[in-house]
Write a protein that binds this DNA or RNA. Structure first.
Lengths: 202, 202
DNA sequence: CCTACCGATCGGTAGG
DNA sequence: CCTACCGATCGGTAGG
């Protein structure tokens, strides 16, 4: 790397480095139990130096959670828009949710566990996003029941069960584990269709 | 209540009152964000007075989590031992897990979210208990696959999906909600059988 | 990016 | 069950 490249990359890249270190430590220890000193240690600097790159501890949490929620919602919307068949739509939304929780484990853990420490209006925004997220599953399952493609007593309960099993992936997934992200996403897509009583591939 | 009854009940009942107040506030705010002053406020006393009833903030967390884990494990074991039919066994264990997470919402939230703040050797004990808990599901599903009662690619993935959807109940269940504890327990029992490809009642 | 430091908060103890 | 208080920690600022 030339000096010019370093001069250009370092100022902009440093912010991302700080956020990434914060993300790792927030996920491992919890937001409230993480000190600015912990984050600084991970970067080999002193705590006050962090304030050259981020505004506050709270601002890091907000960036992490808002960005993660936006990505999960965008992936879900792409899955939703990719087909008009309810069976395929439910499978693809479940697949997207599982992949998000496998790829963005740290973000998912922090967003779910530390959402309560978000200052307003950020916290309300995240709850609202979550409502939209749930609604797309619920409406898809309700549509499937109306069309006769699915057979389940409560679309709401099925929605919550399908979402929660995907959220759980963030808690135990390891890159080095027995099942690949794709294997898990595929199987969980099948589970979702089984839960709602829909037709499956296998 | 007579004075004698009050004299007998108050000293022993006070410890339980403190734990219950701590449990409510731990669940709402998180262990690290809860101060001894918060718990004292809920009881109408001053923070130092709490130490007449409990040893420390940490000891309250340990009692709450250890007790909850023991109850969930005991309920699961009763379900496991109540039948030798794998289908009925899986249904009943799922039912017990859902009922635990609906009845002991606060305990479940604290146990799952704040387990990392448990001092050793308590933390290791809880992880070990969790291993036993998972193993009973895994073995039941594996047995069902061997017997031909279930049809699922990965017993491990099905185990995690079934457990996690039950854990999720603690996050949204309300006594006043649309579905009763029994309705949810029943439907989730069906979901579990559907996930593993087993026969269902409906 | 650093050192020095401030104001606030917290778990727990002393002593009654 | 209380008041008074201690030692430690923390997020953030000043000033360089």
């Amino acid at each position: 790397m030339t000096d010019v490249e370093a001069a250009v990359l370092t100022p902009s890249g440093r912010h991302a480095d700080v956020i990434d270190a914060a993300l790792t430590i927030f996920a491992a220890q919890g937001y409230r139990a993480t000190t600015m000193g912990d984050i600084a240690d991970a970067l080999g600097i002193r705590a006050p130096s962090l304030y050259n790159h981020v505004k506050s501890k709270q601002s890091m949490l907000q960036q992490i959670v808002l960005d993660a929620m936006a990505r999960n919602l965008a992936d879900q919307k792409a899955a939703y828009d990719s087909t008009r068949d309810v069976t395929e739509r439910l499978r693809r939304m479940t697949d997207a949710n599982v992949r998000f929780h496998a790829r963005s484990r740290r973000e998912a853990v922090v967003a779910n566990r530390d959402i309560r420490y978000l200052d307003e209006p950020c916290r309300s925004k995240v709850y609202a996003d979550r409502g939209v997220f749930e609604m797309r599953f619920r409406e898809t399952i309700e549509a499937g029941v109306r069309e006769g493609a699915f057979d389940v007593r409560s679309a709401n309960l099925a929605t919550l069960a399908i979402i929660e099993m995907g959220v759980g992936v963030a808690r135990w997934f390891r890159e080095s584990g027995e099942d690949s992200e794709s294997a898990i996403a595929y199987d969980y897509g099948e589970y979702a269709l089984r839960i709602v009583g829909g037709r499956q591939l296998r």
